[in-house]
Structure formats: structure tokens, C-alpha cells
Amino acid sequence: GGMHIDSGVLNTFARQLFYNLLRIGFRNINLFYHHQSENFASGMPNDLAFRLAAKQEIFAFLDREKGDGWWGEDKASANYYAEHDAGTDPFSWIRVEPFMSAEAQAQWPIDHAGEQETSLMMAFAPEGVDMKRFDDKYWYAQHAPKANMEYANKAKAFILADLKKRLSK
């Protein structure tokens, strides 16, 4: 049971989204990803679709703006490595990061429709939780009845403070 959207479709959608945001002038785009982000460092198909789309559209945007071969010919590109170290290079215009940092995941381990995700839904989108509809036939959701607002509010407070800290970098 569940819905699956092919990562190629997500990549196409994300490319259109990022293209249009760059086209109208956005240069500080942050996308926080949660589903299957416990392997974010190595990547899973869906988060990689968004991460790839970000780089593809930045390259395409720079090609359109500066012309083919901009990387080697544009004197401004000579500052790329210094800008990269400072986080001001064009490839930092779009950041795709996990919603929960490794530190947050250590305290509230990610699951799939279990205690953690159900609690997070209770905290962030309570209208999306109706425990009367709980069905224990799926192994991954067996701990959903443990979801509670104390856990939810502690996780939410930590996640929001952590996101604020990460956004200020």
C-alpha cells in the first residue's frame, strides 16, 4: 500500500520549478526533504531527483545567461573556488537538504508512518492525522499508535530551531 511517484517525474517537476524560480530572480532557494532522508548523505532516488534538478537548472541558467563555455571563459568564474568555500557561488542558489539534520535524526529516528512520522504530522499538520483510520496490516506503521503530542512538540521545537540555525549559514 502506498503511492509511488517515479524519481524521473520528480526530477522533471523540480527542474521546471527551479527554472522558473531562477528566471524570476530567486537566488536563495531552500528545499527541505523528508521522505527516506535517513540516507541523505548517500542519497535515495527521490531526494537525488531534487538535488540533480537543482544543479541541472543552475547550469542551464548560467549557460543561458553567460553563454556556452562560461565556466572556462568568464573571468568571474576564476573566483569560483573562493566563492564555493564562502557559500556564495551560483551552486548555492538552490539548497536541497534533509528536513531533519543528522543530529535531529539521532534524537528522533526516522520511520515510515510510525511513531516519529505520525508524531511529526500531529505537530506540523494535525489535520492530516486521523488515528481512527489506523490499519496495523503494514509492518512499517506498527508503532504509529505510540505517536503523542509530547514527543511531537519536543521534536518540532528542536527541528524548527535546527532549521533556523542551518538557514543562517
Results as ranks from 00 to 15, higher is better:
N30F: 03
A147Y: 07
R51F: 00
A49T: 14
Y140M: 07
N39E: 10
D85W: 08
Q36A: 12
R23H: 11
L62S: 04
F26Q: 11
A54P: 06
F99Q: 05
I94D: 04
Y80V: 00
A86S: 09
A78C: 08
R51V: 08
R95K: 13
Q105I: 10
F40M: 06
D89N: 12
S92H: 15
H84N: 06
P90N: 06
K137S: 15
R51G: 08
A82D: 12
A104Y: 01
Y81V: 02
N39F: 14
V96C: 05
P90Y: 08
S77I: 01
M100E: 08
D136H: 01
M121Y: 13
R23K: 15
Q107G: 09
A123W: 00
F99K: 10
W139V: 09
M131Q: 07
S119E: 06
N148R: 07
D136T: 00
S77V: 05
G69S: 03
F91Y: 13
A141Y: 04
D111T: 13
S42C: 08
M122S: 04
I110G: 07
A53D: 13
E103W: 06
G67A: 10
E38D: 15
A104S: 15
K75A: 11
K55G: 11
S37G: 13
A60D: 15
F124D: 09
G69E: 07
T88G: 04
A113S: 12
K137L: 01
M100D: 01
L120N: 12
E150I: 11
D89W: 05
L120V: 03
A76M: 03
P126C: 01
I110N: 12
G114W: 04
K55H: 13
G43F: 00
K146R: 13
D111S: 11
F32M: 10
F59Y: 14
I94W: 00
P109C: 00
A53P: 12
V129H: 02
D89Q: 06
R133E: 13
A82F: 10
S92V: 02
G114F: 05
A102L: 05
E127I: 07
Y81C: 04
W71H: 09
A144T: 09
N30D: 02
M122W: 01
F32N: 05
A141E: 03
Y81M: 10
Q107S: 07
A53E: 13
A53G: 08
P145E: 05
A113I: 01
E150P: 01
A144G: 06
N46P: 01
D136E: 08
D135F: 05
L31G: 02
Q36M: 09
D89C: 14
G67M: 10
L120C: 03
E115A: 09
G69W: 13
R64S: 10
L62A: 08
